[in-house]
Design a protein around this nucleic acid. Structure first.
Length: 451
RNA sequence: GGUCCCAUCGUCUAAUGGUUAGGACAGUUGGUUUUCAUCCAACAAAUCGGAGUUCGAUUCUCCGUGGGACCGCCA
């Protein structure tokens, strides 16, 4: 049987890193099994769904290189299809109209929870006769559709967790549609997965308790059951599901901060999965080759930005200077090439660039105390600067000659600070080469004047 | 409260009955003729607890404990 997997994001927010990880694992699984990776937009919630979020999902997916193999489905285009299946269920008396009000349900739920019972629908409308329903309909009472959930245990085999069992008796008759024009998530998922011939449902663990509901819906509809695999959640530093309280949760945030798609994917891949060997840096192709659902971790994984930073830096270091300038949106010229060469290994994220190179283009401002090497004092710094300015030729050779008498630190530190204005920067000779002797002398003079 | 899931260094993880419990990030220290970064080397750091099975448990079973997810006419 052909492997067909999907991700089903709902456009109610910017594309979430958790969804991105789910997308990656689905993608890896599909590629490895020569199957198809599909995308479905779950916009059945008309109130909360927005076009801009849908666009964001698609563009981030593209940025990550996780594009769908077939046309992207939108649930809002499929109401007629859902309606058909829904009516079918009602005709077979596997689903029924429920006229209970929200208030009634709330009070029941409250008292159940207080009594220590599983909160579920009490089945009040399940036994309504055709005549009773007619009367309510004529009175135009509001209703929803509920599935008759069998009071039996259901077990499914999860590819990551093994056998998982739920009790239908504890679930109760679930609402599957608000009206025949407006079906709910669990119902739409089952219909779509069936129609899209999804073979494996690989999704976050937060969906594990939806699984029995979806299986019951599927069985009522007479569908075959897909295989399930529930991925561990990505957690914040407090071990709770990654949410907006944590720094950044949308892929867009990371892209804008200057993370590259390759290390980002690499990082996501290592969250809950690891290849056999002790390897950390993996391309998408390598992950495809090595991926294995059985090696997916069961416990949640904390989103650890430090490791992402490290991976990003590794990738940046291995980029050519030309490519890096292109990514930064900079002109490829001799000066920029020299500069990028100097700051490349200091770059963790693309966004660090401007901060690192400012002094190459403008005379930096800094406190004169910065010119002081260790406990040398201002006087010593002034003396060194004077000697540097007096140099016939400001080059490595003559400066190193000065170091002979004063020592390396006492000479090189003030020189470097005079040129860069910063306590951390590339070496003085490297900066000197980019700046040119004239500008360097100018900056030395400024430093001298500061003291 | 109910249901379900989970549990190896601070973090991501390796090791599925026999290892000095391995690697990576972060941390610390030292080196790479100034700083930062890079690179290199070293150090520190974990099997949640208790029973049981076994000659032997990180690994299997049970009971605790802890954490998490879900419990909507959201997805």
């Amino acid at each position: 049987m052909e492997v067909r997997v999907r991700i089903a994001p709902s456009p109610t927010g910017f594309f979430h890193v958790g969804t991105a990880r789910t997308a990656l694992f689905n993608y890896l699984f599909a590629r490895q099994n020569k199957g198809k990776f599909l995308v479905r937009i779950e916009d059945t919630d008309i109130e909360r769904s927005e076009k801009k979020y849908e666009e964001d999902i698609l563009s981030e997916l593209k940025w990550l290189g996780l594009e769908a193999d077939e046309e992207i489905l939108k649930q809002s285009d499929r109401t007629e299809i859902y309606k058909k299946y829904l009516h079918n269920l009602v005709e077979k008396n596997l689903a029924y109209k429920c006229f209970c009000t929200k208030e009634d349900l709330d009070t029941v739920r409250q008292s159940q929870m207080v009594a220590g019972m599983a909160p579920k629908y009490n089945g009040k409308c399940a036994a309504l006769t055709k005549e009773e329903i007619k009367v309510k309909e004529v009175a135009s009472e509001a209703y929803v559709f509920r599935l008759r959930v069998p009071e039996q245990k259901i077990t499914f085999s999860d590819l990551i967790r093994g056998e998982v069992t739920f009790d239908g008796a504890l679930i109760g008759d679930i609402v599957i549609a608000k009206s025949d024009e407006n079906v709910l998530y669990n119902f739409a998922v089952v219909v779509d997965d069936y129609e899209m011939k999804i073979s494996h449902v690989i999704r976050g663990e937060d969906h594990i308790s939806n699984t029995p509901k979806q299986i019951f819906i599927g069985e009522a509809l007479g569908f075959s059951r897909p295989q399930y695999a529930h991925l561990p959640l990505i957690l914040d530093s407090k071990r709770a599901k990654l949410s907006k309280r944590f720094a950044a949760v949308s892929v867009a945030d990371y892209r804008e901060q200057g993370y590259l798609p390759e290390p980002f994917l690499n990082f996501l891949g290592l969250l809950g999965w690891h290849p056999k060997e002790d390897r950390e840096i993996l391309s998408a192709l390598e992950m495809i080759a090595e991926f294995n659902l059985e090696r997916v971790q069961k416990g949640g994984a904390i989103f650890n930005v430090e490791k992402l930073d490290w991976l990003n830096q590794q990738y940046i270091k291995n980029l050519s200077n030309e490519k890096l300038l292109e990514l930064l949106g900079k002109e490829i010229n001799e000066k920029n090439l020299k500069i990028i060469d100097l700051v490349k290994e200091r770059l963790v994220k693309l966004s660090d660039y401007e901060l690192l190179i400012g002094f190459f283009f403008a005379v930096p401002d800094y406190e004169r105390e910065l010119l002081v090497w260790k406990d040398g004092g201002l006087e010593k710094a002034r003396e060194v600067l004077e000697k540097l300015l007096a140099l016939q030729k400001l080059d490595k050779e003559s400066v190193m000659a000065l170091c002979e008498t004063f020592g390396n630190g006492p000479v090189l530190w003030p020189l470097r600070v005079a040129l860069s204005g910063s306590k951390a920067s590339p070496g003085p000779f490297e900066i000197l080469e980019v700046l040119g002797e004239g500008e360097a002398r100018n900056r030395l003079q400024i430093a001298y004047n500061k003291i």
